[in-house]
């Protein structure tokens, strides 16, 4: 029994083979990307930061911001209704999530964009006082506000499920223990439930914001000038379809990467040992 025998780990043949195959594919892909003249990289770079694209980027960011800014509070309310004692509130919450998760975003967008066909005028009417204020629906629900409305309602349905799952991930014993110590309901939520639910909510919420960002691209069908529509406007003039689609994709990649980085940073902070509250 010599102690000087050399230990040889077993060779992972399949993995080696896969590595070679994948490397070859990457090489072929890169070769085609840079050698295929139809990519027209010079057009991609020329159009990447043209004012029309940057305006489109701003619209995309605005839509995402409004969708998240209003969608999260609305989703929180829907989630809270689901936890309520009232059967009616529970049912309304369930129904809301059912409808807005089931109907595709694109269909919802068309709906809100064409809502004037259903309700031509919006009016504020109080019993006894009659109609206080009224205006044509089309004045309020322009393309942008219809898009925001559709995104918010759609987002809230998903967000409410994310928040509900997060709250349910905290065992009831935690609430019991906090109540037994003398915390009020809001104290229980703020000190004990939310800090724990947050770890479950955050990664899902991050994914939700990213998918909202991408979902905003559907607004191009109602001629709202977001990143995608701006790219389309340019290529309809110049016929550089692929290069402009690459420009749009690159912008989505940039923003999504920034959002992911923010998400990882916050998650990293949360997974550290908590500082005193």
């Amino acid at each position: 029994m010599s102690p000087n025998l050399v230990i040889v780990p077993k060779t992972k043949l399949a993995e080696r083979l896969a590595t070679v195959v994948v490397a070859a594919c990457i090489a072929a892909l890169l070769y085609s990307i840079f050698k295929n003249p139809h990519f027209e990289w010079q057009i991609v770079f020329a159009n990447f930061t043209v004012p029309a694209m940057l305006k489109g980027l701003l619209v995309t960011l605005e839509l995402t911001f409004f969708a998240v800014f209003f969608g999260f509070p609305l989703g929180t309310i829907v989630a809270a209704m689901r936890q309520a004692d009232s059967k009616l509130l529970q049912s309304v919450s369930w129904f809301y999530v059912w409808v807005f998760r089931s109907v595709p975003m694109l269909v919802q967008l068309f709906f809100w964009f064409n809502i004037a066909a259903l309700y031509p005028r919006l009016a504020l009417t109080l019993p006894g006082l009659g109609e206080l204020y009224s205006f044509p629906t089309n004045h309020v629900l322009t393309g942008f506000s219809a898009a925001v409305l559709a995104l918010v309602l759609h987002d809230a349905a998903y967000t409410s499920e994310i928040i509900r799952t997060g709250l349910r991930s905290v065992p009831t014993g935690q609430r019991d223990a906090a109540r037994a110590l003398g915390f009020t309901n809001s104290g229980v939520m703020y000190n004990i439930v939310f800090p724990q639910a947050f770890r479950v909510i955050l990664p899902a919420a991050g994914n939700q914001i990213i998918s909202t960002l991408k979902a905003t691209s559907v607004v191009s069908v109602i001629a709202l000038k977001d990143v995608l529509y701006s790219a389309q406007e340019i290529y309809e003039r110049t016929y550089d379809v692929i290069p402009l689609l690459i420009v749009a994709s690159l912008w989505y990649l940039v923003v999504t990467s920034l959002l992911s980085m923010g998400q990882y940073w916050i998650e990293g902070r949360l997974s550290r040992k908590d500082e005193p509250l």
Binding site: D176, A177, L181, I192, Q196, R199
Partner: peptide
């Protein structure tokens, strides 16, 4: 809720599963 919470603060309780808060030291 506030008045009940105040009463509970005068009553100590230890649970079967302890229910310590896992996110706090």
């Amino acid at each position: 809720g506030r008045e009940i919470a105040r009463q509970r603060s005068r009553i100590g309780m230890v649970f079967q599963q302890y229910n310590l808060f896992p996110h706090l030291s």
